[in-house]
């Protein structure tokens, strides 16, 4: 039963990792940009949530109505003002620039909020739980997992059933021809980054409710996100959820064996899957 419990907790944790990963996956899919600053943007969203909740007394989940659009706006501006200029045949400039951005965000947060750990106070939600047949489910992890499924479903739907998603796929296929069809790729990329950072905002708030955070924790979130994306297979959002779940389960089982093994077990699961299936478990089949 204890093991089953670990698996259940790990699965739910995987929802959070999938939320870390979804934005990363979306950006890579649309513009082949690997965003090194992604983890720090998640942390930035948590801090924005902190500012909003302390200033207004809002519940952190209610603060999403402010933080999501704010992050989306930041995403669009960042893409149009900076990242578009780095995109081209060479993959190095975007890596260097987003690495620099990561350093800037971390230092900016340190300057503005200090290095003290913070957290978002979600009240009773943080400790509420549900007991079913000997297993206890935290309401927050359950909610996180449900949100992850809803977000991934929503992204998938946007991709395959809306004009915006069609534009994302067209630009990803062939930038020149998409431009010829009246789609300005710089604008489309801006919208993709806006959407990705909107998802990142949700991830950041849920992270901030779940654990305490400080300006330096972005790097590890980036790694978890990466691992979830790669395990699941690039370009497959449901695969990303599966990747998040596998990572989460590996971590909780590792922690069960020895608390010090939590992170290591996740990385080992990642490496094993990478060795056995270099393209991840569910790579997108391209026609």
């Amino acid at each position: 039963m204890e093991w089953l419990n670990a698996i259940v907790q790990g699965t739910l944790l995987g929802g959070l990792y999938a939320l870390f990963a979804a934005g990363l996956s979306l950006i890579f899919g649309v513009m082949r940009l690997v965003n090194i600053a992604h983890g720090d943007l998640i942390v930035l969203a948590a801090y924005l949530g902190l500012t909003v909740t302390t200033a207004t007394g809002m519940h952190p989940l209610v603060a999403l109505v402010i933080v999501v659009p704010a992050m989306a706006l930041i995403g669009y501006a960042l893409q149009r003002g900076l990242l578009n200029q780095t995109l081209g045949d060479d993959i190095l400039p975007p890596l260097l620039v987003t690495f620099g951005l990561s350093v800037i965000i971390q230092n900016g947060l340190l300057e503005a909020y200090s290095a003290d750990p913070q957290d978002l106070d979600a009240g009773a939600l943080e400790t509420a739980s549900l007991a079913v047949g000997g297993l206890t489910f935290g309401i927050l992890p359950l909610l996180t997992f449900a949100i992850a499924i809803a977000v991934i479903w929503g992204l998938q739907w946007t991709f395959y059933h809306t004009a915006l998603g069609r534009a994302f796929r067209a630009v990803s296929d062939n930038q020149d021809i998409a431009q010829l069809m009246g789609l300005n790729r710089r604008h489309i990329f801006g919208l993709a980054m806006a959407l990705a950072l909107g998802v990142t905002a949700i991830a950041g708030i849920l992270l901030g409710i779940r654990t305490s955070f400080d300006p330096a924790i972005g790097g590890a979130r980036l790694i978890f996100g990466f691992e979830a994306v790669i395990i699941g297979g690039l370009g497959n959002l449901w695969g990303t959820l599966a990747g998040g779940v596998i990572l989460g389960v590996a971590q909780t089982i590792g922690a069960k064996i020895d608390p010090g093994w939590q992170l290591l077990a996740g990385h080992i699961a990642f490496l094993v899957i990478l060795a056995v299936r270099p393209n991840g478990l569910f790579p997108r089949v391209s026609g």
Binding site: I177, M181, L183
Partner: peptide, 15 residues
């Protein structure tokens, strides 16, 4: 566009 269906390819033209 390989990731688009025939109909979606046409729709992109109407953009």
């Amino acid at each position: 566009f390989p990731s688009l269906t025939v109909r979606e390819n046409l729709m992109i033209g109407a953009q």
